[in-house]
Design a protein around this nucleic acid. Structure first.
Length: 460
RNA sequence: GUGAUUGUAGCUCAGCUGGUUAGAGCGCUGGUUUGUGGCACCAGAGGUCGCCGGUUCGAACCCGGUCUUUCACCCCA
């Protein structure tokens, strides 16, 4: 006999966890639907050629590859093995597990371009897999909840992303969080005005760490990446600037005055905020983070990231606009914007904050219990009537002592026990016992149903 | 991929510088109570000390490897 175990970085979800996860998942799904997104699903596995090269070298490393079926070594010769893992890989594996939902979505759009009506709004809630080392808030299998719009560059989409995030967090009762927003064009502009045009990539990587390692270290890293000291110093007014959204916009207008792209980014942000105002919305929780970069290189416009404050979990949601997502699959000119909720991280955040609602579990309301075979038969006849009345009910399936049956009810947080014995059969009643209060009364089945149904709304 | 860290009963953890039959709390099973849960009391079951190897008269404890856990880096939700 072997001890069973799970692959590294994967987890089981028990009933309580699932109730809580569904609470989060349902909230997100409900929100996506309210904003007009349609659900799709794609396969867990994709052709490796669809996945590789989309996430950079690092990303390729983190892809789970699936060994070919049958004799996966049949195409491999000794010379392949000598050429190393990479040379051999393509001969033993042609499929992989999806790494995110965005690339499969791009593939989906390209393959279905003739069927889809653009702009196309889709959401997708499915697990993804990454072969990196698990740590806090990081798993090898986790869910993403993506919503994307493709085929429009309207900034309404950006504004609505803010609204969806706020709706979800409000429903989940998460109050202290920031929606950090920036624009890739602003970052490009910054690289231009400090005299390091074209080096926005390294700039982003370094500047993104500002929160974590501080301005001093960022300067060191920039210097290492061949940024002129003079250029680095030009960043400091930006780093040191403090103010609200409006002040920051004004500052950027000034700071980026010589960069056409940069100013365009500022305009886009301004317009996005303008749309929110036109919808009668405010900018609560919105923070313009002028140095927010995010890793993914395909973002070209707005960038989002959501951080819950005072918890040890990293960002719980992120996204942005990409001008040419489908280009790699041969379909140019499709602009899109999307974002994703990380359910597993939101779960961790809510657990850390201890803000899950008490009764997320909507379990059995009535357990039918019985003393003997006769009572059991009687209970069976009542079970159907309870269920017809819409009451979640079950019968204790075995002959067992009443103690054990009631214990089962208590442990499963079942509100009522309906006890069936000789006396009850005699009087055609059941002994309905409220297990929370201990109050018990003999009622006809119809009266018992009424009592239970009256009780349910109170529970909420 | 780099550097640390963890593993003892179902769960949370004790277990001294290596030395008899490895302990506790909670949980579980049964009983006190053969028509009534929670509370109390009593009794009981349950461990190849992650796995493999080494050192030793002797290893839960020391050493090596491996897997796992957690954490940081890289990167990311």
């Amino acid at each position: 006999m072997q001890k069973p175990s799970l692959p590294k970085g994967t987890r089981d979800f028990g009933p309580l966890q699932m109730a809580r996860r569904n609470f989060i998942l349902d909230t997100i799904k409900d929100t996506f639907q309210l904003f007009g997104y349609n659900q799709i699903e794609t396969p867990a596995m994709e052709n490796l050629s669809t996945l590789t090269g989309k996430y950079g070298d690092e990303g390729d490393q983190l892809l789970f590859k699936i060994l070919n079926s049958g004799d996966f070594l049949k195409n491999v010769g000794p010379e392949d093995l000598q050429n190393g893992a990479n040379a051999t890989l393509s001969k033993v594996s042609e499929k992989g597990l999806r790494y995110d939902l965005t690339v499969p979505f791009a593939r989906f759009v390209v393959m279905n371009r003739n069927e889809l009506t653009f702009p196309f709004k889709r959401f997708q809630i499915q697990p993804v897999w990454r072969a990196d080392r698990p740590q806090k808030g990081r798993y090898r299998e986790f869910y993403q909840c993506d919503a994307d719009v493709v085929g429009t560059d309207s900034l309404v989409c950006e504004a609505e992303i803010v609204l969806m995030i706020r709706r979800v967090f409000s429903k989940l009762n998460i109050a202290d969080y920031d929606i950090k927003i920036n624009n890739r064009k602003i970052l490009t502009g910054i690289s231009e005005v400090i005299g390091e045009a074209g080096k926005e990539g390294p700039l982003c990587v370094a500047i993104d760490k500002l929160d974590k390692i501080g301005w001093e270290k960022v300067q060191e890293e920039l210097a290492q990446r061949d940024f002129q000291n003079e250029s680095i110093q030009k960043l400091s007014p930006l780093i040191n600037f403090t103010g609200g959204v409006q002040e920051k916009l004004d500052f950027l207008k000034n700071f980026l005055a010589s960069s056409e792209v940069g100013l365009q980014g500022v305009e886009e942000l301004k317009d996005t905020f303008g749309i929110l105002q036109a919808m009668g919305e405010d900018l609560s929780h919105v923070e313009l983070d002028m140095v927010l970069a995010r890793g993914l290189s395909y973002y070209t416009g707005a960038i989002f990231e959501v951080k819950v404050n005072h918890v040890s979990i990293g960002s719980v949601s992120g996204g942005g606009r990409y001008d040419n997502l489908t280009g790699v699959f041969g379909m140019d000119g499709v602009s899109g914007v999307g974002f994703s909720f990380g359910v597993d991280r939101i779960y961790d955040v809510m657990e850390e904050l201890n803000i899950f609602p008490q009764s997320t579990a909507q379990g059995t309301q009535v357990l039918l219990t019985h003393f003997d075979q006769k009572g059991y038969r009687y209970a069976l006849s009542i079970l159907t009537r309870l269920r017809s009345a819409g009451i979640v009910s079950e019968i204790y399936p075995d002959q067992a002592k009443m103690k054990k049956q009631l214990d089962y009810a208590s442990k499963n947080q079942i509100q009522f026990a309906a006890i069936c014995g000789d006396q009850e059969i005699e009087s055609q009643t059941i002994a309905l016992k409220n297990l929370e209060t201990g109050v018990q009364e003999n009622l006809g089945v119809e009266d018992a149903i009424k009592t239970v149904l009256e009780f349910i709304p109170q529970k909420g």
